[in-house]
Amino acid sequence: MSKISNAARSIGKLDELARKDTWLNRIHPLVKLLVTLLYLVLVVSFPPIRLTGVLAMALYPFLLFEISGLSFRDALYRLRIVLPVVCLVGILNPFFDRERVLTVFGITVTSGTLTMLSLMVKGVLTVLSSYLLVATTTIESICGALRMLHIPGIIVTEFLLICRYVTVLLNEADRVTQSYALRAPGQKGIARKTWGPLIGQLLIRSMDRAKALYQSMCLRGFRDDRPYLTVKSVTATDLFYFAICCSALIALRIFPVLELVGGLFVS
């Protein structure tokens, strides 16, 4: 199976995960969206030097992975392209910021190293929490939640269509490359001189298919300014989940949890 069809399948699998009937999937999408947004804001709000604070925030995604039954290994595998990019952020910090902060087992840790690690952890945590949201909530439900937040219909529609057309683009790319490979046996990859026409064809074909899909939606009553999105009403369980998550996250942000726990063992 080609890398492109693997990517398309991966999107499909993510959508299947989001449609499962687990307790986390059943939580109202607006609640999950708000909790995720709060989490992102809190993680980003830590000063770069406070690595222990950021590490404590890892409790939220790890706990959710554990109790929701989602596979952490699967998540890492799916995010294998994004995570290295995220880890590159701040990689030069140790070279520019050499101020000595502490020594651990005889190794000097500089401020630059700490900020680099902090940025990496922040990046990984934000990606993981976003993954948790999309793996337990369908795109339609997320869009429904956005509409509940009074995000304009046209913007939500754009978001929804982009999500749909990504698969269309991948499928078309897969067909084009398969057709190429079948007529270029033994050749590794695609010859550089054919990149231009191939990308041109891919764009034209994707646009044609996207247009046909859009027409199909319009023929079934779809309107740009009024995307159909059904969102159930918020229940007491949703509110309970919201209250627990928000208070726990705010507590993790305010109190130096790891330092307090460490203080119990180190005098």
């Binding site: 449609r19 339609e140 749909r164 159909y228």
Partner: peptide, 15 residues
Amino acid sequence: FMTTVREDVAFAPRN
């Protein structure tokens, strides 16, 4: 264009 058959068949009535 929807994920499951049920969702796709429900698309128009919901709209």
